[in-house]
Design a protein around this nucleic acid. Structure first.
Lengths: 138, 138
DNA sequence: AAACAGATGCAATGGAAGTGCATTATTGGC
DNA sequence: GCCAATAATGCACTTCCATTGCATCTGTTT
């Protein structure tokens, strides 16, 4: 079990107080968060810092970006089973139309999608919309 | 074979010169277009008009919106086999990482996606990214 | 301690989406 | 055909999110 510090260092990311806090914030969240969410959680800090921190995390494959169709970019920690580095990794995200939250279903893989002749599939983005387990009353 | 005028009327959309032109523009395009694309094609007209025309078309299920992950909303005509009215219609779109164009693969349906217990799937947005037939050199 | 690189904060920009309101065009009743 | 009602169009403006430039600060290296 490596510490967050070790994780960041292993990815060539300089460890700062802010980065540790943001990482912890993301780790505690079970849902994908927007930049605004992070802003709200760290009002003392500047938007830009938060934005650039997320971008750094993204470059180093610590978080991945999710486009759930709300028009607002969301981010979530890459967890075990999330091979974002690999182009062909098949993400699956679920967006709840009720609570408006988006979660990462890393253990639900996407079936192979057939494309017409001449087309080359490199990557698949799949967002399922509906009602999440919390909202469906279970 | 009904005319565009008849189609618009059947959907309770008042026929105007602008709407006919925009419809024809969309029909000629084989790819999904952004609002900017339409703007560029109709410089004489105002953004707002084009925007509201597309929104009207969208409400009346003449075009559907596509979120291909570029962050910019695209639109495409609903064609035969495109049942946008139906929530559960399984759209499949292809975004080319080379030419940056997005096309609608209406005849390629999406397989049933399994979601965890407690989750209810209402709608699926699937975008396959890769290289399109034109760019793959076929 | 000095020099450097990188992190942070502030200000500003840009692009897309959306809205309010005045003007113009179209339709339907007379 | 004319007039009133209704809808479409155009202009200006606003909002929201994403992004960048630059100055400052902090931490690291020699």
């Amino acid at each position: 079990m490596q510490t967050i510090e070790q994780l960041l260092e292993s990815k060539d990311i300089r460890v700062t107080a802010m980065r540790l806090l943001i990482y912890k914030f993301l780790a505690e969240k079970e849902v994908a968060v927007t930049l605004s969410d992070i802003e709200d959680a760290f009002e003392k800090s500047d938007r830009t810092t938060l934005y650039r921190t997320i971008k750094t995390f993204e470059e180093k494959d610590i978080v991945h970006q999710i486009d759930d169709g709300t028009g607002i970019t969301k981010y979530a920690l890459c967890e075990k089973g999330c091979n974002c580095e690999i182009e062909t990794d098949l993400h699956l995200h679920f967006h709840c139309n009720n609570c408006n939250e988006t979660i990462c279903l890393t253990d639900h893989k996407i079936p192979q999608i057939k494309v017409p002749d001449g087309f080359v599939s490199e990557n698949v983005n799949l967002v399922v919309k509906g009602i999440c387990d919390k909202c469906s009353g279970q």
